[in-house]
Amino acid sequence: MSELDVQIPTAFDPFAEANAEDAGAGSKEYVHVRIQQRNGRKCLTTVQGLKKEFSYNKILKDLKKEFCCNGTVVQDPELGQVIQLQGDQRKNVSTFLVQAGIVKKEHIKIHGF
């Protein structure tokens, strides 16, 4: 009978790893770079999710100078501060944020069509 003795784990949680991964994914702070369609061929690029310790106005100033476009910082009640830039600047903004050392490449999500 000793050959058939099998220990059945009683305190095993099969979903422990899945719950740990969800907590890790939720704790990561992503920077979202989106495009919003205006009228006709005009569009806006929005950047949200930057850490609050950064000066949004200084980042905006550098972005405007680098890409020769206009922009502003908008205060949203749900999302906090959001940087808006004229035109489709999604790729430019993501490479700028990585090269400036503000955000790692893994933490940037680019949205849009």
Rank of each mutant, 00 (worst) to 15 (best):
K28W: 07
H32D: 11
V73P: 01
G49E: 02
F15Q: 11
H107K: 14
G112N: 07
Q84A: 13
V74H: 10
Y56G: 00
L85M: 01
C68R: 14
V47G: 05
Y30C: 02
R90M: 02
K64S: 08
D62F: 09
N19P: 03
A18P: 06
F54S: 04
L79V: 07
E21Q: 15
L50P: 01
Q81P: 01
R38Y: 05
F12M: 03
I102A: 07
C69L: 03
K104L: 08
T45D: 04
Y56R: 02
V93L: 09
A25C: 08
G49K: 01
P14Q: 05
Q48G: 03
F113W: 03
V73S: 09
G112T: 03
D62K: 14
K52G: 14
G71Y: 05
L44P: 08
V74D: 07
N70D: 15
R34H: 07
V31D: 03
Q7M: 12
H111T: 04
V93W: 01
G112W: 05
V74Q: 11
Q89E: 12
I83Y: 05
E53I: 09
I35M: 14
I8M: 12
C69K: 06
L63T: 01
Q75T: 15
G71H: 00
Q84M: 12
Y56M: 11
Q81G: 09
F12K: 09
K28I: 13
I59H: 08
R90V: 05
L60W: 06
A23P: 04
Q99P: 03
L44Q: 08
S27H: 10
I102R: 02
N39T: 10
Q37V: 06
L63P: 06
D13P: 06
F12I: 10
V31W: 04
R90P: 00
L4Y: 10
A23C: 07
N70C: 05
G101Q: 06
K58G: 08
R41A: 13
K28H: 05
V31E: 08
Q7C: 14
L60R: 00
P14L: 05
V6F: 10
C43N: 10
E3C: 07
E78H: 10
V82G: 06
T45I: 00
I110M: 11
T45S: 02
F67P: 04
K42D: 11
E66Q: 15
Y30D: 05
N57T: 14
D62Y: 09
K28D: 10
G26D: 13
N39I: 10
Q89K: 15
V74T: 08
N92C: 06
